[in-house]
């Protein structure tokens, strides 16, 4: 999947002239050397994670971290999926739902708001944008407790909404939405659509969203990851374990130090990263497609 994507880039380069020929051997070697070193740096902990996921609890503490010792990967995986009556699978599913639905709504609300801030001239829009940007500055972990107290007053805690509602409000989405809208939606087009008698809402849905689709995917990815990674909000909001997202579930296992389950935590971490990697790889196709479309101008 990744390999197919190299092709357009390469051809683009060749079309632009045979620049490849002009690169000196030493430049090429330095370039590839640095890139390979960087790749090693990024991969070392991943290698550790993979190796460690194959070890039993005892082997974990009696062997070198980069070398194999015994092979308990399948036992560990079974442990992960059977611990607490198989909650882990449920947690993965929850994470996908929270991050997927939450990310989609966050993107939609944020992009719509950013679009309005970019494309309509009205009094107070500077103030609104400023206030929203200000929201970015507040450490979100510190808002969680007041939010919890408010949510519990209206009976939202320990429900899916307690995680979803804060997740769909993403000031960063507005920030990006505004910039992308200003950049990729020409005013002339807006005017032309208006002259054709299209309503503002219709213009947004049928023209703006289409033009902004690469931006939409980008904002969605940002939102998706930030929801997937957030564990403090669900930690405070949820007490029913069957509602946990996977990051919180693993954190909970990790901090249950009275139980010897280091192998389960490590294997669970590895397994929880895999869906995200898959999401990236598959979504990357969209956003790269969007990118080239966006850079035509």
């Amino acid at each position: 999947m990744t390999l197919t994507r190299t092709r357009p880039q390469k051809t683009e380069r060749f079309q632009n002239g045979s620049a490849e020929l002009r690169v000196s051997r030493s430049t090429a070697m330095v370039t590839m050397g640095v890139l390979t070193l960087a790749a090693v740096y990024f991969l070392i902990p991943v290698w550790w994670l993979i190796v460690s996921a194959t070890k039993s609890n005892t082997a974990l503490f009696s062997s070198n971290g980069f070398g194999f010792s015994g092979f308990s990967l399948f036992d560990n995986i079974v442990d992960v999926f059977t611990k607490q009556d198989g909650l882990f699978g449920r947690w993965l599913l929850n994470s996908v739902l929270y991050a997927g639905i939450g990310g989609l709504l966050a993107t939609f609300l944020g992009v719509a708001c950013g679009y309005a801030l970019a494309k309509y001239n009205f009094r107070g829009r500077g103030v609104i944008f400023g206030a929203i940007l200000g929201g970015l500055l507040i450490p979100s972990a510190l808002l969680t407790v007041p939010l919890y107290l408010m949510f519990s007053r209206i009976g939202l805690v320990n429900t899916v909404w307690a995680v979803l509602i804060p997740a769909i409000v993403n000031p960063f989405a507005v920030y990006l939405g505004r910039i992308y809208a200003a950049a990729s939606m020409p005013d002339e087009l807006l005017e032309a659509a208006r002259l054709d008698g299209a309503s503002e809402i219709r213009i947004f849905f049928s023209v703006a969203l289409r033009l902004m689709s690469p931006a939409f995917v980008t904002v969605f990815l940002f939102s998706f990851v930030s929801i997937w990674n957030n564990f403090f909000l669900p930690l405070i909001m949820l007490s029913d374990q069957s509602l946990y997202p996977v990051t919180l579930g693993i954190f909970n296992w990790y901090t249950q130090t009275r139980e010897a389950n280091y192998n389960v935590v490590i294997t669970g971490s590895l397994l929880s990263v895999i869906p995200l990697v898959i999401a990236f790889l598959s979504l990357q196709r969209f956003w790269r497609a969007g990118l080239s479309a966006g850079s035509v101008k």
Binding site: A116, I138, L143, P146, L147, V169
Partner: peptide, 16 residues
């Protein structure tokens, strides 16, 4: 366009 986000923003950011 603005109110859905704005209302929720008031609720989960400004109020806390």
């Amino acid at each position: 366009f603005i109110v859905p986000f704005g209302a929720l923003f008031l609720f989960v950011y400004v109020a806390p």
